[in-house]
Every structure is written in C-alpha cells, then in structure tokens.
Design a protein around this nucleic acid. Structure first.
Length: 483
RNA sequence: GUCCCCAUCGUCUAGUGGCCUAGGACACCACCCUUUCACGGUGGAUACUGGGGUUCAAAUCCCCAUGGGGACGCCA
C-alpha cells in the first residue's frame, strides 16, 4: 500500500515549489491506489501561524489537491487514524521517543549554553576541523538530567553519531547517493525549550504514519543522512526517498518573492486557472512518456511514475504558463468560463446591463475568449461594453483625423436612429453598414475604422459585426453622439 | 572551506551506446487566413559546457575541469 505525504511548514502562502511537491505526492498516491496525507510541520513556533496553515489549505483546495488524512479542509479537525496531523500537537509522542533514545544511549542531554557551543565551534574552525559538536567528556546521566529538566533548567537532547561509516540511499530520482557519516556531528533532537526539531519529528511521523514514499525537495537531500541515522536507532523501516529538483527563477536562483508572483494565491489573483497552473507545474520536473503536455487530471494520474522525474533544476517560465492558461481557458464551456470570469468583472465594478442574459454571455465570451490569456484579461474587453466607460482613446486620433470619418459618423448615426429594432443582429449591422457606405460614399478601411471608433472608441479589437449585436441600439447612438 | 546534487535550443523537455545530419512544446521570425486586433494554419532560425578516456560506434558509460544549486542551525 502506497502512503505518501505533503508536509508544509505554515509560514506563508503555498509556493509553486510546494504546490508541485504536493501535486506529485497526490498523483503518486492516486496512481497506485494509495493514500495521500497532509501533515503540518509547525514546530518552529516563531514563524508558523494558524493563518498561514489556513492559506495553504485553501491553496491546495483551489488546486484540487485533496488529502485522505490530515486536518479536515473545513474544520481543521484531525481526519484519519494516525493523527494528530499537526506536529505542534504531537510533542508528547516525540518526547517519548527521544527519552527512549537517551535510555538506550543513542542520545544524551546537553546542558551546554549557546555561548559554550559557539566557543567549541570557533576552536574547531581555528584548528581547521569541521565545526561539528560532539558529546562532552562527561555526559550527565539520564536520571540526573531529567531531574534538572524537571526543575526547569534548559537542556537539549542530542543524537549521538556512534560509528564512522558510509550510508547509502537508493534515491528514486537520483539513484544511489552516498553520505559519509562524518558529514554531521551530534545533532539536536529536542530543543532546550522542549520542542523537537524537524529532522526528528519527520522521521517519527513518517514511521508512525506508515509513509512508504517520501517525495520532497532537493534541499532535504542532505537531511536524509540524519534521518537515516534516526530510523536506524529507532529500528523503524526506511521509506523510499525521492528528492525533487528545485524550481528556479529566471536568474537561476531559487524561486523567491523578488521574482514576482510565486505563490499559488498570486496566480489565482492574476486570473490563472488552477487546472492550468497544475498542469504547468506538473511539467516542471516531470514529463509524460509520449511527450503530450496538456493532460487531464485522469491522464496525469494514469501516466504518473517516478521514472520520469528530471533530476535537473527547472526555471519557472511564466510565458509558457500564460500560453497554457489561454489553452485551458478557451477549452472551458462558456457557462463555466463565465462563472470564473464573473468575479473579476464584479471586482472591476463594470456596469453591464445585459449581464443576466445567458445568450449575451455566450455571445460576448465566445467572441472575447480568443483575446484572453487570463481571466483578468476579460476586464478591459468587457469595459468596452460599459457605456459609462466609453471614451475615444488616443489610439483613435489618426482615424478621427481622416476627412471621411465625419461623413461616416453622420451616416452611421442617421441609420441607427432610423433602425426600427432595439438590437441589431449581425445581418442587420451588415445591411446598415452597406447603407452607410452608400450614404457617405466611403468604402474600405476608411469606412470600417471610423465605425469601429464610433462603437468602441478605439481602432482595433474584436470584429465590429460581433461587437454591435452585443450592445443595445440606444448605447450605440449615445456613443456616436459623443464623437 | 568541507560534503552532496545537477548540466541538451532563450525556457520546459525527449533521449537509458547505433533509430540523432538531436525530436516536441512555449517564446521568436516569415508567410497564409483576415478591411483592424486576436484565434487558427504552414514554414524557419536556435542546443548536447569543456577536455580526456572506454568502444567498431558516445548527447548517452568513466575520469577531470568549469559552471550552477544545496547542506553544514536548538529553521523547515
């Protein structure tokens, strides 16, 4: 049974890198009919917040990455038999294992102060040795140590790196990786404030939650050595590891805030579709066997295997994401697309009198979607239909200066006023345009462009024969009168 | 500094010794469609970091160099 997890630390919005790790784990679980667990790694009390945890959960939901065990997406109550799923709620569990290691001599209490440890490190560096902490000559016996701790004295628990030897992992992404044990000194398991550290919690949780495969970012590769030592000391079975390469910014540095939009929430706000972002990050470090790029969730699940991970880091290219978003957006059924676009239009405060008309939505959206790459692109397009926002744009200057323009506008207005109906169909418009042509004695672009300016105030955009049927005659007249 | 990871078009990537005069996608350029702008269609330019091996044969295996990234925390 495959059991995988995503274990974010709640210190901000969900990052695209984190989203990718979550997606890969999720797909892997679905591919092999296993379970996907969400675990919150909030042992850093300084930086973790409840608010950030909610944001991350909201982002995962938005992406459609749902978990079988973990905090309930709404209530945040533990869901599943291996809880609690927040590390800050598992302190006692960690403590128990730490004490066990102390009793077995695999770990020891360390009452040395920060400044003492600092001095030791400096001395090591001065003598050109790696600055690794080792056990003091005299270790405080467990009983005495516990006595001192219970009196409130601050003391940490350190793991004792016992023997010098090489550790090997068969990494699912990188193949065999060798770690010499002297890469690390005796490392802290439990802080002197009683809170255990990441490497320790991670091992205990993964073991207790029966995690079989750990797919995580490459930054954890060297942590794996420490974790392997803990697994060994606790006699826990080792899961399979797969270390995913980084997602980088255009400058090949690790993607961060200064690269602009990097959180899922940023992309949501900018009008990206979750399915497009999903599909895009999927392809940043993984490829499909047949080279196809646009893949439905079902296809993703069916094709997802660890053999197709790319060990090299990937640069995040928003241009391609934009293309992919446009592709998904245009493929959406109109009513669905409308549901996604509508919040952006509302946010922009546009006044669109026919907004309740389903046929009008269909008509406008199918005309506009070829010029949209993001949902936010709908706003300037629909603004053209808002009478209160109508104005002759600076780009129209040249057309307005044509001597033919005034003649065309005059005829246009005259014909509009004479038109019997309330709205013009495409055929009505074409016929009317013909009469304007005869009346003004103008043809070609000198006819066409002034009419466009009369309709939307600018010389370029969607075809006029599609635009005119979107508006009421009264709007068209009002606009023409403003020229 | 020490250790670890990585290296194919500008970018995402295919490639697991002969199918590679290196394939696809985005972006770019040209043309077509089009009385504008998009969409769409067709075509084009562009890459195996360098040097040594191994082999009849290397983008592919090995070594070295170079470059990039990561870890070396009582952060995760």
């Amino acid at each position: 049974m495959v059991r995988v997890r995503f274990a974010p630390s709640p210190t901000g919005y969900l990052h695209v890198g984190g989203a990718r790790t979550a997606l890969y784990n999720f797909l892997y679980a679905r591919r092999y009919g296993g379970q996907f667990i969400l675990r919150i790694e909030d042992t850093d009390l300084e930086r973790s917040t409840e608010e950030a945890m909610r944001m991350q959960i909201a982002d995962l939901k938005w992406l459609g990455i749902l978990w079988d065990e973990g905090p309930h997406p709404e209530s945040l109550q533990d869901l599943g038999p291996h809880g609690p799923y927040r590390q800050s709620h598992r302190k006692d569990i960690y403590r128990q294992y730490a004490e066990r290691l102390v009793d077995e001599g695999r770990a020891y209490y360390d009452f040395r102060t920060d400044s003492e440890l600092e001095a030791i490190k400096e001395k090591l560096i001065a003598s050109e040795k790696p600055p690794q902490i080792e056990a003091p000559a005299q270790i405080v016996p467990p009983a005495e140590a516990r006595e001192r701790i219970s009196r409130g004295e601050p003391g940490a628990i350190r793991f004792r790196v016992a023997e010098k030897r090489d550790y090997f992992v068969q990494d699912l992404v990188r193949g065999e990786v060798r770690f010499p044990s002297d890469m690390v000194g005796d490392f802290v398991l439990v802080r002197s404030n009683g809170m255990p550290v990441y490497n320790f919690c991670c091992v205990i949780d993964d073991a207790l939650m029966k995690i079989t495969h750990v797919f995580r970012a490459e930054e954890h590769l060297s942590n794996t050595l420490r974790q392997m030592m803990i697994y060994e000391a606790l006699k826990f079975p080792l899961p399979q590891f797969g270390h995913l390469s980084f997602i980088l910014g255009p400058d090949k540095q690790k993607l961060s805030k200064r690269h602009g939009a990097t959180s899922c929430n940023d992309f949501r706000l900018r009008g990206y579709l979750p399915e497009a972002l999903n599909n895009f990050i999927l392809l940043s470090g993984w490829s499909s066997p047949d080279g196809r790029e646009i893949l439905s969730r079902d296809e993703q699940i069916q094709l997802f295997t660890h053999e197709r991970f790319n060990p090299a880091p990937a640069v995040f290219d928003e241009t391609k994401l934009l293309w992919m978003n446009a592709t998904y957006l245009r493929a959406l059924p109109t009513e669905e697309l409308w549901a996604r676009v509508e919040p952006f239009l509302r946010e922009a405060g546009l006044q669109l009198p026919q907004v309740e008309n389903v046929a009008w939505r269909e008509q406008t959206l199918s005309a506009f979607k070829t010029s949209m790459q993001t949902l936010a692109d709908a706003v300037p397009l629909y603004r053209l239909l808002d009478d209160s926002a109508f104005s002759v744009k600076p780009e129209a200057q040249e057309v307005c200066a044509w001597p033919e323009a005034k003649k065309v506008w005059q005829a246009w207005l005259q014909e509009l006023r004479a038109f019997p109906g309330e709205k013009l169909s495409e055929a009505d418009f074409l016929a009317l345009q013909d009469r304007v042509k005869d009346l003004a004695g103008v043809k070609g672009k000198h006819l066409f462009q002034p009419i466009r300016v009369a309709v939307i105030g600018q010389p370029q955009g969607t075809e006029v024969k599609l635009l005119v049927p979107m508006m009421k005659k009264s709007s068209l007249i009002a606009r023409a009168e403003k020229l």
